[in-house]
Design a protein around this nucleic acid. Structure first.
Lengths: 340, 340
DNA sequence: CTGTTAGCGCGTTCAA
DNA sequence: TTGAACGCGCTAACAG
């Protein structure tokens, strides 16, 4: 566990000191801070004045231990750098703040092993809830969570077998909807580019949604129109060029991952390919930038921030006693713009 | 303080249970987990087996209280959603993880009051260090930090009067360098757009750097060539159009904030303005996207990730006993591309 | 190498 | 409305 840590502060006034300064007992100070209405006005004022004067900062570590409560929520995202997750984290942080809770944040780097390690560390910190942007977990992760009995929110997809609560949208449904949308606009040969479906369930679900749409349309899967690439703008550019080389008459490509679509659009600009004249491009997620590119990008709008907010709220609900596990599908929206 | 929290877990095995199961004392279990080399191999193995079998998750809350150590670092950024800070957070998180430390993350929303509240909450959690992406703080913030005696890193600029440690680059120097660079490339009337300099010290320092460059060049400040706007792509677009309306012969604009430059570039594309023929555009920060736009964007490269990493490392150093406060200026780099 | 004792700073539970 | 005793789960400091 934690090694290179430090003595966490200098002298640091304790509650005892405040009690002495105010001429009351320990408990009175404790109450003044947590249940002010239970004290007479003058006592309360005396205590709070002493707190101010001494500059007392409560020790929530001790409070947690004594009360067996915690005021920290753990959230684990696949990548802090990815602005999509940043939105969700922001939503969570906002709601938690208003409730006086704090956020312990972890980056799993898309690795289930790392997620497991983080879950262990967070449970050791006795978080009062976990928000996982992932629906696959190692057996040990599941075991630890069950044993701890901590409320959990899964997010990022709708799992078939949720651990506890779910706040998300369906990758499958979203990808299917976009594919059908493109077909409805008259595109005949729609390519699909995503991240690695073997290690990334969200990518896999999106690909399944794409296939489901083809089936509904009575079209055949064409392996040449499906590709999986790494993350990043450059990947998107390459994927587009490769696919157009293999299948010259492809007329639309649906990029179901990160910033792939933007990379492709920029590459098309560089090569002077008309979008959507030569090739139509659709993206999965409505990043801010999608409505500023030239042409503006057709995409799906996912409730990123809302997922973070609702997740935190679901946790708060549970803490207030609701037992019914929240299972929310927040849906999505197809945004038609000029790129298709 | 924390209100709507929850009993943090079900039964949850304690160290006592492990001790019983392994037939040893409490301390032996504690040692097996934290100083394995101090135990005989067989004892250690017996204990660790028991830990596995029982599924024991240590209680770091209790450990913290008993040892007066903490394994949590607090980091406060102005905006989690801003990908610049996300990079820094990522750097911090990575280094902390390898050291077994955890990250308590806060979003101050650019407000000193909110920063103060977060600092209070983090100190209550007895964090073993603070990383603040800000060099201005309320008096109460400063007082709390001093009293707590916690190591602090300030980041995001080089403060004249650091609280403790600093890991950053100089906004002033960077802005000056870019302005000089533009002048050296032959631009005569260089505009400057930033965020609000009244509430944002980084913006202020950048503006000062721009003015310093003008002075060094023997050019006059022209108020019409200086503007302050809100954040966002749209702001950048408007700022450019406004400035070009006011000063038709402006030949370059240096956007010293967020994604302003990208918004401007897209607007130029929409209007069919040649970049840099009609107007040259330079950006402050080397977002990934800067090297993919058409034309690619001239910008400053700031050591975002490195700031996060080094900050965490400086904290670790301090915890290992180094008293000398780290004061690092990690510098920057001017990246010349086709937009200027 | 292992165990025992004492207490970290606070909240809970009672009694006053 | 206020206070005293006790213990949360663990580690430090010692003893063996």
């Amino acid at each position: 566990m934690a090694e290179g840590n430090i003595r966490s502060g200098g002298p640091g006034a304790r509650m005892r000191d405040v009690a002495n300064a105010a001429g009351v007992s320990l408990m009175t100070v404790s109450r003044a801070l947590r249940q002010p209405q239970k004290l007479s006005e003058e006592t309360r004022k005396a205590v709070l004045d002493a707190v101010q004067k001494i500059g007392y900062v409560p020790n929530s570590i001790a409070a947690n231990l004594a009360s067996n409560r915690s005021s920290v929520v753990g959230q684990i995202v696949p990548s802090i750098q990815n602005s999509l997750y940043a939105d969700t984290v922001k939503g969570t942080a906002d709601v938690l703040r208003t409730a006086g809770l704090n956020l312990l944040l972890g980056d799993s780097g898309y690795s289930l092993q790392d997620e497991e390690a983080l879950i262990g560390a967070f449970l050791a910190q006795r978080v009062c809830g976990l928000i996982l942007h992932n629906t696959d977990h190692t057996p040990r992760s599941l075991q630890m969570i069950k044993r701890a009995g901590v409320p959990v929110i899964e997010t990022g997809d709708v799992p078939h077998n949720p651990i506890d609560m779910v706040v998300s949208y369906s990758n499958n449904a979203a990808a299917k909807a976009m594919t059908l949308h493109l077909a409805a606009r008259g595109y005949e040969r729609i390519g699909f580019v995503s991240l690695d479906t073997k290690i990334n369930r969200r990518a896999r679900e999106r690909q399944r949604g794409y296939f489901a749409a083809l089936k509904a349309l009575g079209r055949r899967k064409d392996p040449l129109l499906v590709s999986e690439v790494g993350p990043g703008l450059t990947s998107g550019a390459h994927a587009m060029v490769d696919m157009m080389t293999r299948v010259p008459n492809v007329d639309a490509i649906f990029f179901a991952g990160d910033v792939l679509a933007i990379g492709a659009l920029f590459e098309a600009q560089r090569r002077g390919w008309k979008v959507p004249g030569r090739i139509a491009i659709a993206a999965f997620d409505d990043l801010d930038i999608m409505q500023h590119t030239v042409p503006r990008m057709t995409c799906l709008r996912l409730p990123r921030l809302e997922i973070g907010r609702r997740s935190a709220e679901a946790l708060l609900e549970r803490m207030r006693g609701t037992v019914e596990p929240v299972r929310l599908d927040l849906g999505f929206e197809v945004i038609q713009r000029e790129s298709t």
